[in-house]
Amino acid sequence: MKMTSLKMKQILEERLSNPAYRTSYKRDKDTFRVEWEASKQGITITLPNVVSKYNQRGDQAIEELVDHVTEALRIMNEEHELTGMEKNIFPVIRATSFATETNTGTALVCKEHTAETRIYYALDLGKSYRLIDELMLENEGWSTDRIDEIATFNIRSLANDYKKDTVADNDFYFVAKQDGYDASRILNEAFLEEMKANSTGELAVAVPHQDVLIIADIQNKAGYDILAQMTMKFFAEGRIPITSLPFIYEDKKLDPVFILAKNRPEKKK
């Protein structure tokens, strides 16, 4: 039997059945929403996307979705404290188009990074994390500077293991620990300085999506083309895409660049 949005809706209603939840379906948008009855906080699921994943991966796609939704709803319904959880606070990189407030209108704690990226802060909860908002800081009496200092310290404590690939005399390094903070390692200045010190060409870095940091030791024009294609491919495939533009790392600064075929990149104005 062919899977349809309505059939998927029925499956999700059954799998997410809970007397504390309220579910609804919007036919015009083909979306299914599950939320806490009391707080109205919840998640909206685009059904055609789930059907597409189901057609590719079968029941496993539904299992993963139900796990993610259940975990997200659990987190929404809990009170989280920062004091005593300092070691679990990390920075996360997002695109500048990413929301700056929660669904309930509370401002998320964030900081400008580059023209393409912004820094947010996450409280790691094991299987998932929660982005830190202004209300959480207010309740703890914490400043933005304090959360930034703690998160920056913690990102330096993570391992920076990478895989290396050499193409047309250019070296590419991939950090992909799958811990949720791969792209965040771009904020580890000591790591970037170490890579810069060991590079023989121009150092470029890219954060196409949350789960990878690409560092490239560019030796020739072909290197820029390869990096551009690689970054675009990762960006298109990423679960949480960030930016398809790589950066040149020079003098402890990150400059987004447009990479033109067969040419050295031009810095973005």
Rank of each mutant, 00 (worst) to 15 (best):
M232C: 08
G126T: 10
G126S: 07
L227G: 11
M136D: 10
K233W: 05
K177I: 01
N154L: 11
K26M: 13
E79W: 09
L108F: 10
E78Q: 05
S143K: 12
D59M: 13
E250Q: 15
N220C: 07
K177T: 09
F90S: 03
P241R: 13
F258C: 08
N170G: 12
L6A: 10
Y249T: 05
L6G: 14
I218G: 09
A176H: 03
D161W: 11
S5K: 05
F153G: 05
Y121I: 02
L73A: 08
Y121V: 00
E86P: 06
L192W: 07
F191T: 11
D255A: 10
V175Y: 08
D169A: 12
K267T: 15
S17L: 13
K53P: 09
E101C: 06
E202G: 02
N139A: 15
T96F: 10
A176F: 03
L12P: 06
V50N: 05
Y120I: 11
E140H: 03
N55Y: 04
A197I: 00
L65H: 03
P48H: 03
G58E: 04
D165N: 02
E194R: 05
A99C: 08
L12R: 11
L203Y: 04
V51A: 00
D165Q: 08
N88C: 13
T114Q: 03
A168R: 06
I186M: 01
A159M: 12
V257K: 13
V109C: 05
T104M: 01
S157K: 15
M3L: 15
R185T: 09
T114S: 03
I214F: 09
L135C: 02
A190M: 09
T243N: 08
L125N: 02
A107D: 08
L137D: 14
G180K: 01
G84K: 02
P208T: 07
Q56D: 12
I119K: 00
D28C: 12
L125C: 06
E193R: 12
I75G: 07
T102G: 08
H113D: 05
L47A: 10
R130L: 09
Y21K: 01
D133R: 05
A95L: 01
E237A: 11
F172N: 04
N154S: 15
S143G: 14
V92F: 03
D182G: 10
L123G: 08
T31Q: 00
Y162L: 15
L192R: 13
V257A: 09
L123R: 07
G238M: 14
E116Q: 15
S244Y: 02
E202P: 04
D148G: 03
P208A: 13
F32P: 01
G223I: 14
L6V: 04
D30N: 14
S97V: 08
L158C: 06
V212I: 13
P265Y: 07
K2V: 07
G238V: 06
F153D: 14
R130V: 10
S157D: 08
L187M: 10
G126F: 04
N77R: 07
L227H: 03
E86L: 01
N220V: 04
I215R: 00
